[in-house]
Structures are given as structure tokens and as C-alpha cells.
């Protein structure tokens, strides 16, 4: 069997704060193959973005630090990789787009300049070639009249157009992995659908893998091959998308699905997950979801439940799994 494109094992990332160290990502493991889409789901602060930034080597340090585990990308270990080697990979073999298209482009430089800068950084091409390629990229992400947009400053573009430009930048060197950190959260709903559609098409064209971070299960249903559900820094469930939606095996996943609005059910109000995410600097003993879990039993307080296989390829970190759903 071939090694996966990206293999993350027991990754832990900590941040030093005035109130001590806290672990934003706690022993996270997953793998992603070429051409596949992995969705990482969870509430704000569950460690999704920190996981992504850890893979990209972009954790602000200080205060952040990878304290354990391994990230293998195309067989190469990224934890402890030299900054020079990392810079050679970023924007080249792996690209990333961010949540805030409004602030993610540098206001002082033209859109075209910022995209072609990435090409010039990684490939031995002339200025003219990189400009031509940038215009082609802008066309591929469906920015109208790309020749004109090349010389526009970011403030002239709408949020959706800026996110397209960010995608063009991330794809400029045809990466094998694209990490998209909530790429549609800041956009209007209609634009969201367009951006997701674009990502899907680009994946099909290029065969790259996508790690898509979202808190929106609708996005997951549309995009994901596999899903990673995170809660308070840990993976609580990992499954192929179809299996996850058919039979979620962690109470948190069930709770997330309950809070998605649906038209086909007659609900007076949305089911919310009661309570708050625990403070990462002061986690409860045992299962982290215990305080909010409608299925909690006394044993849940004893130890952190490990991820166990509940069905082939489907893992959940709940001592009561497999859950028998009514």
C-alpha cells in the first residue's frame, strides 16, 4: 500500500500564555490521500486551525510550539524541518487559503503582483512568464477580465473575488495539498456555494488533496470524502463522510448535526448543544465532552476515552460507542 500524501500522528501543539501553557491540539492523528477531501469539523477554538497551521509550519512561535507527534508530507517529516526547507514547500507543494479574504491580501501590492510573487519564488520562470501564468490562474478561478484585475489593488475587489485571488495564489505552483481554513465563512451564502464549487472543480482537474476546515456540516456533506470531528483539541470521531452522516458515533457529532437547520423536519427550534466548551487551560478529568453530553455516565469521568474502531474505517472516542440510535 502506498503511503498517504499527508500523515499526521499524535500531533500536539501548545501555546504559552500568561496563565500557563495550554494544549490547543492534543494527539491528533489522521491521514489524507492524493485527490481526496478531508473535512475537519468542530466549534471555534477546537484546534482545527491550529492543526492546519501546524502542518503549514505557520504556528506563531513564540508563543506556539509543536510539542509532540509527527507530520509526514510526501514521506518527509515536517516536525523539526529546517525553516529553509519549509519555505521551499509552502506555496509550492502545499498551499493554504484563509478565512478572511478581506485581510489576507497585502493592501500595498496589486493582486497580480502577489500571485506572481509566489510563482517567481518557487519556479525558475521569467517575469513575463509568471505574469502570463498569473492571468491564466485568475481566469481559472473565474475572475472576470483577469488582465485588468492583475493590476488591481485588493481593495478594489469584493470579498468573493479576493478569496478567488487567494485560491489562485495557493494553487499557483500546483500544490499536492491545499489547506482551506474556513474559506467561505466570511462570505455571502451565494458566494460560498460558488467558492466551494470552484474548489471541487479545481480538485477534480488537478488531483490535489484538500483539507477543508469548517464548522458548517452543510459544507461537509457537499465536499468531504472523509471527516474529522474535533472537540477541545482532540479528534472525537473520524469516518468516511457517508458513514458519519448515516450513523454518527460520538455524542458531540450527533449534537452538531442536531444544530444544523433542516427544512425536511418540522422543528420549532434548533437543538443546541447545551453548555460551553471547557477551558483548554483547565480541562476536566475524563471525557472532555462529558459535561455537555446527554449520554454521559459515571465512567466517563474516569479516563480520556481513546479513539476506537466502531466500524471499518470509522472511529469514535466515546466509551459508549457504538451508540445504538433509536
Amino acid at each position: 500500500m502506498n503511503a498517504p500524501l499527508l500523515a499526521v500522528d499524535d500531533l500536539s501543539t501548545e501555546f504559552k500564555t500568561d496563565h500557563g501553557r495550554f494544549r490547543a491540539v492534543d494527539e491528533v492523528s489522521f491521514a489524507l490521500d492524493k485527490g481526496r477531501t478531508l473535512c475537519v469539523v468542530g466549534e471555534s477554538g477546537c484546534g482545527k486551525s491550529v492543526t492546519a497551521l501546524s502542518i503549514m509550519g505557520l504556528i506563531p512561535s513564540p508563543p506556539g510550539h509543536i510539542v509532540g507527534g509527527s507530520i509526514r508530507f510526501e514521506g518527509e517529516e515536517l516536525v523539526g524541518l529546517s525553516p529553509e526547507r519549509y519555505q521551499g514547500l509552502r506555496g509550492n507543494r502545499m498551499g493554504m487559503i484563509f478565512q478572511e479574504p478581506m485581510t489576507s491580501l497585502n493592501p500595498a501590492f496589486t493582486v497580480g503582483d502577489q500571485i506572481s510573487e509566489a510563482i517567481l519564488r518557487h519556479e525558475p520562470v521569467s517575469q513575463a512568464e509568471s505574469k502570463a501564468r498569473t492571468i491564466e490562474l485568475l481566469r481559472r478561478v473565474r475572475i472576470p477580465s483577469p488582465e485588468k484585475r492583475f493590476d488591481d489593488y485588493p481593495h478594489k475587489l469584493s470579498g468573493g473575488m479576493r478569496q478567488r485571488a487567494m485560491i489562485a495564489m495557493a494553487l499557483s505552483c500546483s500544490p499536492d495539498l491545499l489547506i482551506a481554513d474556513e474559506p467561505t465563512t466570511a462570505l455571502d451564502v451565494t458566494i460560498q456555494a460558488q467558492i466551494l464549487e470552484l474548489l471541487g472543480e479545481l480538485r477534480a482537474e488537478s488531483g490535489m488533496a484538500i483539507m477543508l476546515i469548517t464548522h458548517d456540516l452543510g459544507v461537509v456533506a457537499e465536499m468531504a470524502d472523509e471527516v474529522l470531528v474535533m472537540y477541545a483539541g482532540r479528534v472525537v470521531e473520524r469516518a468516511p463522510a457517508a458513514a458519519l452522516f448515516a450513523s454518527p458515533q460520538h455524542p458531540y457529532t450527533i449534537g452538531l448535526m442536531g444544530s444544523v437547520p433542516r427544512l425536511d423536519l418540522d422543528q420549532d427550534r434548533l437543538a443546541a448543544i447545551e453548555g460551553q466548551v471547557p477551558n483548554p487551560a483547565n480541562l476536566p478529568k475524563g471525557c472532555r465532552f462529558r459535561a455537555r453530553c446527554p449520554f454521559a455516565i459515571a465512567e466517563c469521568a474516569e479516563a480520556e476515552p481513546p479513539l476506537i474502531e466502531v466500524a471499518p474505517g470509522h472511529q469514535a472516542a466515546c466509551i459508549r460507542a457504538p451508540l445504538e440510535m433509536a
Binding site: L58, P83, Q87, T103, N106, R121
Partner: peptide, 16 residues
């Protein structure tokens, strides 16, 4: 240096 666009610049693989 904390801004999003500086993070973008790093994500492009630019040297420090």
C-alpha cells in the same frame, strides 16, 4: 507582523 497578509506571505513560502 501579526496581520493576516503577513501570514499569507509566509504561506507562499517567501523567505523571512
Amino acid at each position: 507582523l501579526r496581520s493576516d497578509y503577513v501570514r499569507t506571505a509566509r504561506a507562499k513560502g517567501l523567505r523571512e
